[in-house]
Amino acid sequence: MDIVLIFNGLGNQMSQYAFFLSKKKHIKKCRYLYFTSSCSHNGSELDKLFHIKFPRTLLNRFLYKVYSLYDGIPKLRKFFHLIGIKCIRENKKYTYERNMLLKHTKWGITFYVGGWHSEKYFSGCEKDIKETFKFDVENEDETFRHLAKIVSSNTNSVSVHVRRGDYLKSSPSDYYQFAGVATEEYYQQAFQKIESIIDDPTYFVFSDDIAWCQKHFEDKRCYYVDINKGEKSWRDMYLMSLCHHHINANSTFSWWGAWLCRYNDMITICPEEFIKGVNIKDVYPATWIRLKSK
């Protein structure tokens, strides 16, 4: 049995579930498992936003316990391997490996642990994935729905995602390795690139540090979005997806905001790197424009 683990924040959970959907087309005996103790930020969001449920069956409770022991007590791993329980981890450079979709467990249990942040894993499943990741905004407040209309009606709207808070923390933060990629110089280059291609853009800025953005983007026509906090932070991703063009951070959150965009002629700009100093080639789609910070 093959088990794809779902963990970390919303962007990661979406990539992992998309990987599961694609893998299941090849391997029928494939399941997903919320490892909720590692669902950071706002917990397991796929169920809350897309009605993707974690069945609380005896089997799933057993699988959860098995992986908890496997992950938490390294000394037990030799024993687990002997009885056919193992773990396959994604390579550290997030390089696409097609055999990950085709591998299957003839006997025992294999847990697949990784981010799976390459659209190459989703090839042939794009329509299913976009149908799965549809946000329900009908019951959201009037202020938010009005903003969504403003974004949708602006033909030159550009989302700008700036992630600073957790990226600026030093070790042992899980995210410090992502710092120093989407720098101020990167954003200035991205603005220049957008303005060389389209006329009169309106920037919609999404950030956990709006004050920093206001200070550094003061010469741009920006709409600073600051109404989506905590459990409502997913609404930033939805609004990003409504924008015509995108300037992304090295973040799976804005990755999905751009990927879910409905415009075929969209321009998406992203940092050349995903992790500082690591050559990662498969995270960003080939059509996106990659910029290297000076």
Rank of each mutant, 00 (worst) to 15 (best):
M1T: 11
I3D: 05
I6Y: 05
F7H: 13
G9W: 01
L10S: 09
N12K: 03
L21K: 12
L21I: 15
S22Y: 05
K23F: 06
I27M: 05
K28C: 10
Y32W: 10
Y34R: 08
T36A: 12
S37H: 08
S37A: 15
S37N: 10
C39Y: 05
C39A: 11
H41N: 14
S44W: 08
L46P: 01
L49G: 04
H51M: 12
K53E: 15
F54W: 09
F62P: 03
F62Y: 14
Y64R: 13
K65N: 14
Y67Q: 10
L69A: 13
D71A: 14
P74Q: 03
L76R: 01
R77D: 01
K78R: 11
F79H: 05
I83F: 02
G84F: 00
I85D: 04
N91C: 08
K92L: 09
R98K: 13
R98Y: 07
N99A: 08
G108M: 06
Y112E: 10
G114R: 02
G114K: 03
G114A: 12
W116D: 07
S118Y: 02
S118V: 10
E119F: 07
F122L: 15
S123E: 14
E126H: 04
K127H: 12
T132W: 05
K134N: 13
F135Q: 13
V137M: 15
E140G: 07
E142Y: 06
E142A: 11
R145T: 08
L147E: 14
I150F: 01
S152D: 14
S153H: 11
S153K: 13
N154Y: 08
T155C: 09
V158N: 00
V162F: 00
D166P: 07
Y167E: 10
L168V: 06
S170M: 11
P172K: 03
Y175W: 15
Y176W: 11
G180E: 09
G180Y: 05
V181A: 00
V181R: 02
Y186T: 04
Q188T: 14
Q188Y: 12
Q189M: 14
F191P: 08
Q192I: 11
I194R: 03
S196E: 14
I197T: 09
D199L: 04
P201D: 06
P201W: 02
P201R: 02
Y203W: 04
F204H: 02
S207H: 04
S207F: 01
S207V: 00
S207M: 03
D208S: 04
I210L: 07
Q214Y: 00
E218N: 15
E218S: 13
R221Y: 04
Y223D: 00
I227C: 00
N228C: 00
K232P: 01
D236I: 00
M237D: 05
M237K: 02
M240W: 02
L242V: 11
C243F: 00
H246I: 09
A249L: 07
T252G: 04
W259C: 11
L260W: 04
N264F: 05
M266D: 12
M266C: 14
T268C: 15
K276N: 14
G277I: 13
V278A: 13
K281R: 11
V283T: 12
Y284L: 11
P285K: 07
A286H: 11
L291H: 01
K292P: 02
S293E: 12
K294D: 15
K294W: 04
